[in-house]
């Protein structure tokens, strides 16, 4: 666990970057630090590995004050990923990944063998090993950056806007792969981002910072969307937080009405709604494993305002109109 104890950082010249921050980042979880620019989130991150020294207060890793640790030794035990990856241009991809194990005293051969495996793990084939960073796309560089941070298998990872320099399609893909990786590895991660959607998507917990380096609210993404602590957080989280909050609710408990009026094939799979020019597309279907957000979206997009649920075999087994959904949500609230 990483603990901030009443941490203050005032830069020479008097500007306060971090103002009395107390925060816990639980072990094995990803805590997203999010906020507008100048809110002190990056400064806070960089105090964990002593790239920035706090003016007052303490930062503890598993109860031990980082100020008492040797800087280089501390940093070798903490993975570090930044925007644009910050790879060494003069080293091959393989040697970039092998960096920290070599610093820790492994032979170059051992470190390279381990690096090769890691590259595959982040989705890069073996032919990338001998290339130089300039020969990679932004997304590929970022994967190498993640592999490099993981190379010494550190329990803690610090990530500063790791996915913000790549285009939205690649970012989406990196998010998915990263979540899968984290599910396997269970690192304690602090991730800085200015993008609340990214924070909500990746974070087990989200800490929202406001200008002047003060913590506005910390909680699970669901808590943040359901109950923002004040206007600042509510606005930062966004006006569609009601709809977005539905993505944390399962459709399993949602009552459905019997299938009626829907055109089905022989196996009971939906063909569409009856129309003058043949069946009209249902716009997709949902299962019990989907979220209420998916259901709401289907009901809105459906030509008849009804979302279709299917069972594991693909056969339609229930219908939900937007009225049904609204009633369900209203009933749940009271």
């Amino acid at each position: 666990m990483i603990t901030f104890e009443d941490v203050v950082k005032v830069y020479p010249g008097g500007s306060t970057a971090v103002d009395h921050l107390s925060l816990e980042l639980p072990t094995g979880k990803l805590t997203a630090l999010v906020g507008p620019s100048g809110c002190g989130k990056t400064t806070s991150l960089r105090m964990i590995n002593r790239m920035v020294t706090p003016t007052s207060g303490r930062i503890l890793i598993d109860g031990e004050d980082v100020a008492g640790r040797d800087e280089a030794a501390l940093r070798r035990g903490i993975g570090y990923v930044i925007q644009h990856a910050g790879l060494f241009p003069h080293r091959t991809v393989l040697d970039n990944v092998a960096t920290v194990p070599v610093l820790l005293g492994k032979t170059r051969r051992e470190a390279r063998a381990a690096a090769q495996e890691l590259l595959e793990r982040v989705g890069l084939s073996a032919d990338f090993a001998k290339r130089y960073p300039a020969q990679l796309s932004g997304g590929q560089q970022q994967r190498v950056g993640v592999a490099r941070a993981l190379a010494a298998d550190p329990p803690i990872m610090l990530m500063d806007e790791p996915f913000s320099a790549v285009d939205p399609v690649v970012r989406e893909q990196l998010h998915r792969e990263f979540l899968r990786l984290q599910e396997d590895l269970g690192k304690t991660i602090a991730l800085v981002t200015h993008d609340i959607d990214e924070a909500i998507k990746l974070g087990d917990r989200v800490a929202v910072f406001r200008q002047g380096g003060r913590l506005a609210q910390v909680g699970t993404p669901r808590e943040l969307l359901a109950a923002p602590s004040d206007d600042f957080v509510a606005e930062f989280v966004g006006r569609d937080r009601g709809l977005r909050g539905l993505s944390f609710d399962s459709a399993a408990g949602l009552p459905v009405r019997p299938v009626d009026g829907l055109l089905l094939d022989d196996a009971g799979r939906p063909l569409g709604w009856p129309g003058d020019d043949g069946p009209r597309d249902t716009g997709g279907t949902f299962t019990k494993d989907d979220s209420l957000r998916v259901v709401a979206d289907l009901a809105i997009r459906s030509p008849v305002g009804i979302a279709v649920r299917v069972g594991p075999d693909g056969a339609a087994d229930g219908l939900v109109s937007h009225h049904d959904l609204a009633d369900y949500l209203a009933g749940r609230r009271s």
Partner: peptide, 17 residues
């Protein structure tokens, strides 16, 4: 590039190395 130098520092390089 100072970003690369900072990345090196953050990975645990000491000054001389």
């Amino acid at each position: 590039d100072p970003v690369v130098v900072q990345a090196a520092t953050a990975m645990g390089y000491r000054r001389v190395r």
